[in-house]
């Protein structure tokens, strides 16, 4: 089954062609990061404008690269939520009319389910059930993945997403946007114990996360140092910050693994690319005898192959949509 898939929920426009879910024939990605860099974050209107400019070129290129004709496509899958609504609308509107024009089924895919599915592409042997921690610029979710389309959210962030926290930290340190990569690079060789930073807890909800306290602590630390004219040890601050995020994510996730006993842990999303978080998960998983799946870097960020992959399983489960499909800024997993 050949699926054309579309992703446009944030600042990446992507179109992919996948076969039977896990085989990626092509994944065309246009990243707008440069367009947003001068603003220090994604500007929704600029993102939406860019999506509509490039989307059909990406679809052209996807067919070309995959060596597939329109007539061979069996379905269209699209990331319909969650995301920046104006941005999601572009992909959804395009995908709907492509499905209509070709007379093939339309499959709505939850963006986070797509991130989880990125692991199916990377690991052919991986099958549910497993515990998944999905961490990106917009989301932080701990999920019990009972089946390909049967999921239960165990915990989520009560305020900022983990990735958002990286971006804000990078911003206040003048490291540019997006912040994940520069913070990670600068933290190498830094002392992760030099700056004691808070690790958020949500009373009575052991699997929920909170990052706003950490974010505020970093901002205050930087501002205080500026006021006093003190030089900050930026590598150590980045290392301490990464350690604090990791300390928030890893123990909770391991507790969920113990509770559910699946023996399999999957990470997903852009923040899963962070080296400290990866290393801590590796160590914890090894200590507890849990098999850890970390997607390769190129599948951590937003892409359309993951949407095509999850779309395949949604299709098998009968989850298709009519022409009245809408886009949503928020939608339950």
């Amino acid at each position: 089954m050949l699926i054309l898939s579309v992703e446009s929920t944030c600042d990446e426009t992507a179109v992919a062609v996948t076969r039977n879910g896990r085989e990626v024939l092509t994944d065309q990605i246009f990243s707008q990061a440069d367009l947003h860099a001068v603003y220090g974050g994604v500007v929704p209107e600029i993102a939406s404008r860019s999506h509509v400019e490039v989307i059909s070129q990406l679809a052209d290129r996807a067919l070309q690269e995959a060596g597939v004709s329109r007539g061979e496509l069996d379905a269209v899958a699209v990331s319909y939520a969650p995301g920046l609504i104006g941005a999601v609308l572009v992909g959804v509107s395009f995908a709907k009319s492509v499905a209509f024009g070709l007379g093939i089924p339309l499959i709505p895919v939850h963006h986070i389910r797509g991130h989880i599915a990125a692991n199916y592409i990377a690991y052919p042997e991986l099958e549910p059930p497993f515990v998944c921690l999905a961490i990106s610029g917009g989301n932080t979710l701990l999920v019990d993945v009972r089946g390909y389309t049967d999921m239960r959210v165990l915990g989520c962030t009560r305020d900022d997403a983990a990735g958002e926290c990286f971006d804000k930290t990078a911003r206040v340190l003048g490291l540019g946007y997006p912040g994940g990569k520069p913070v990670d690079q600068l933290s190498q060789g830094g002392d992760d114990k030099k700056y004691p930073l808070p690790v958020g807890h949500v009373e009575g909800h052991p699997y929920d996360f909170s990052f706003s306290g950490l974010k505020t602590a970093v901002i205050n630390l930087v501002h205080n140092a500026e006021q006093k004219g003190e030089e900050l040890d930026k590598p150590s601050l980045c290392a301490s910050f990464s350690a604090a995020v990791s300390e928030s994510l890893v123990p909770r996730t391991m507790a969920a693994c113990r509770e559910l006993g699946y023996g399999k842990l999957v990470t997903a999303g852009g923040v899963a690319a962070n080296s400290r978080i990866r290393a801590d998960f590796r160590a914890a998983a090894e200590a507890e005898g849990v098999k850890l799946y970390v997607p390769p870097l190129k599948l951590c960020g937003d892409n359309a192959a993951m949407i095509g992959c999850q779309g395949y399983y949604e299709y098998l489960a009968g989850n298709t949509a009519g022409m009245d499909l809408n886009a949503y800024a928020n939608r339950e997993l």
Binding site: E45, V52, I55, A59, L89, S93, K96, S97, V98, F100
Partner: peptide, 20 residues
Amino acid sequence: SFTGVRIGIAAVKGLAWALE
């Protein structure tokens, strides 16, 4: 409306693309 215009353009792009 920026968003309104984009819905129409994206839909027509999709139709034009699919139908060539």
